[in-house]
């Protein structure tokens, strides 16, 4: 055996004299990890501080209660609003109105986007044909369709459902596409050698494996739908939480405004949590992303 001699320049020159590591403090106190309990305590403390500061600001009239009502009054308003009508509906009625439109637009988006995305992900040709159109329309925010939707469908539920649909259909489609095309081609090959045909592979391997991503797409779509609905309700509605928020702002009812914002936020978080749960339930095998 011949000994190998390096063909490169040989030894690497030392660029800097070696400095020994610092002795003092391996990890600064700020950088140390926290236990779950510490995290919880700090979180509660910080939230409480925030509410206290808010209370002090409006109680001392440092900020006008007209602009920022004290937290207790917001809570009180919330309680009354549950049963008392504002702009023709109780809080429950407005929430139901918003949720109906969101459900409609989101489901329609799924009805179109899910199969379309799966098809785009599965077939090169469909992807080449449809995806450029998508790319062309994507930069136009769904909201910018609102004026056109009003021209086409008038000020009413159909216009809002249409705009919500537009905002939901994009993530439905894009994520379904990504879900399907990110399935390892090796699995498809393996299924083929095990005797599976195209239809069987699509159903039993591709869609099955892609389920967590498909559910994630549904979750993003619902988030978009909710966001867009609020905007649509600011523009053209006679009920709904966005409609309440805008009217409250115009009549300087800041307590009602904050209540509606709070409900909008809580519902958004709730939708997200529910679909995360769905994802875990339908795909227990998936590692949490």
């Amino acid at each position: 055996m011949t000994t190998e001699t390096s063909t490169s320049t040989g030894r690497v020159p030392l660029q800097r004299p070696y400095r020994p590591p610092r002795k003092r403090g391996t990890t600064s106190i700020w950088r140390r990890g926290l236990s779950g309990r510490a995290t919880f305590v700090i979180g509660v403390a910080s939230s409480a501080t925030l509410v206290a500061v808010w209370h002090l600001l409006s109680a001392t009239a440092l900020v006008s209660p007209l602009l920022l009502p004290p937290p207790l009054r917001v809570a009180e308003t919330f309680w009354q609003f549950l049963t008392a009508e504002y702009l023709g509906e109780t809080l429950v009625g407005h929430t139901a109105a918003s949720m109906t439109i969101v459900a409609g637009g989101w489901l329609l988006g799924g009805l179109v986007g899910l199969p379309l995305g799966i098809l785009i992900g599965w077939s090169d040709r469909v992807r080449w044909l449809v995806f450029p159109l998508f790319q062309l329309l994507r930069p136009v925010p769904p909201l910018a369709w609102i004026p056109l939707a009003i021209v086409w469908l008038g000020i009413g539920d159909p216009a809002r459902i249409f705009v919500v649909f537009l905002s939901a259909v994009v993530p439905w489609t894009i994520n379904s596409m990504a879900a399907v095309s990110s399935v390892d081609p090796l699995l498809i090959r393996a299924a083929r050698t095990l005797g599976a045909g195209d239809g069987s592979i699509l159903r039993r391997v591709v869609i099955h494996t892609a389920t967590p991503t498909l559910v994630a797409g549904a979750r993003i779509a619902l988030g978009n739908a909710w966001t867009t609905l609020i905007a649509a309700e600011l523009l053209a509605a006679s009920a709904g939480l966005g409609f309440v928020a805008l009217n409250a702002s115009q009549t300087l009812s800041s307590d009602i405004l904050l209540v509606s914002m709070g409900i909008i936020g809580v519902l958004g978080a709730l939708f997200s949590a529910i679909l995360r749960g769905v994802g875990r339930a339908v795909a227990p095998w998936a590692k949490e992303a």
Binding site: W30, T39, I42, S260, I264, G268, A269
Partner: peptide, 29 residues
């Protein structure tokens, strides 16, 4: 810095679910 994370995350998580458009009326106010 984990302590900062522990303090800010709950508030941030609460607020970030309020869509930006829901802030329009408040911003106008």
């Amino acid at each position: 810095i984990p302590p900062v994370r522990a303090a800010v995350t709950p508030v941030f998580e609460l607020l970030r679910y309020i869509p930006p458009f829901a802030w329009i009326p408040l911003a106008v106010l």
